[in-house]
């Protein structure tokens, strides 16, 4: 089976705290993965390791056939691995359109050009606008990021990642802090992304997880407890004991 993104034996510790231990995964094309687990399980750390924002103590990471373990984060993005952040990590004084245009220009290799005027890049701006439209935030395209409603900012997080034209998209709690009704819209937008795109999202709401994920990974204490289809996960006694037993009430 050819995975788009895979890891082998990833390990990471902060001092004496083990936050990732023997993490081996293989994400095939087009699959919608949910990554679940209690707070502090190491979910964000796994995304940081995959995207190069943290260096693993051991193990390796592959994008398709190519090992990317020692590549810089921006080089991984160039090869098709994009992420969003649990806490908004945006450009407050840029408009939404400018932000996404910047990501498009970086992808196209134009962002180092200093002798040409920005408005000359009509296609980049047009594409940025289309991305914002596809996520339903075109109306806010010309407003400054810091003036956008929080839910819109969460969508802008995703828009920035999409502008890099990823093969794999890692979403760190995309609905964090978003009210329940808005969160459904947000996941509708995520599920309508191109079907060949591999998506892994971290989410705590089990209704959302079971509705939108085709596979589920459960992490506890820096380890992968189990990986399987929603049906398998729902039936798994170990999962019920350590995780669902507590969280499923909510």
């Amino acid at each position: 089976m050819s995975a788009v993104l895979s890891t082998r034996g990833l390990a990471k510790r902060f001092g004496s705290l083990v936050v990732a231990q023997d993490l081996s995964l293989a994400l095939p094309r087009g699959v919608r993965y949910a990554l679940i687990g209690p707070n502090g399980a190491g979910k964000t750390t796994l995304i940081n390791l995959m995207t190069g924002m943290l260096r693993p103590d051991a193990g390796s990471i592959f994008l398709g056939e190519d090992e990317i373990t020692s590549l810089a984060p921006e080089s991984r993005v160039k090869r098709g691995l994009a992420r969003t952040f649990q806490i908004n990590t945006l450009f407050p004084s840029l408009s939404a359109l400018e932000s996404v245009t910047l990501a498009v220009l970086e992808r196209e290799g134009h962002a180092g050009t200093w002798w040409k005027s920005l408005p000359a890049y009509r296609d980049a701006a047009g594409e940025a606008h289309e991305i914002l439209s596809s996520l339903g935030i075109a109306k806010d395209a010309y407003r400054l990021t810091r003036e956008l409603a929080y839910g819109r900012q969460r969508l802008l997080e995703i828009a920035l990642a999409l502008a890099t034209r990823p093969k794999v998209l890692l979403l760190d709690e995309p609905a964090a802090g978003v009210p329940k009704d808005e969160s459904a819209d947000l996941f509708e937008a995520i599920s309508s992304l191109a079907s060949e795109l591999t998506v892994l999202f971290i989410e705590h709401d089990m209704n959302v997880v079971f509705r939108f994920a085709s596979r589920i990974i459960v992490m506890v204490g820096g380890r992968i407890l189990v990986e399987g289809s929603p049906g398998e996960i729902a039936r798994d006694p170990e999962v019920r004991a350590v995780y669902l037993g507590k969280a499923a009430h909510g």
Binding site: T51, G52, M53, A72, P73, E74, V77, K78, A82, R83, F85, T89, L90, F91, P92, S93, L94, E98, S99, L102, A103, E106, R107, A111, L160, A161, A163, T164
Partner: peptide
Amino acid sequence: RGIRENATRMPAIGA
């Protein structure tokens, strides 16, 4: 301006 506004985000958009 992107770097000034958010240096952490820049590598995540491939910059």
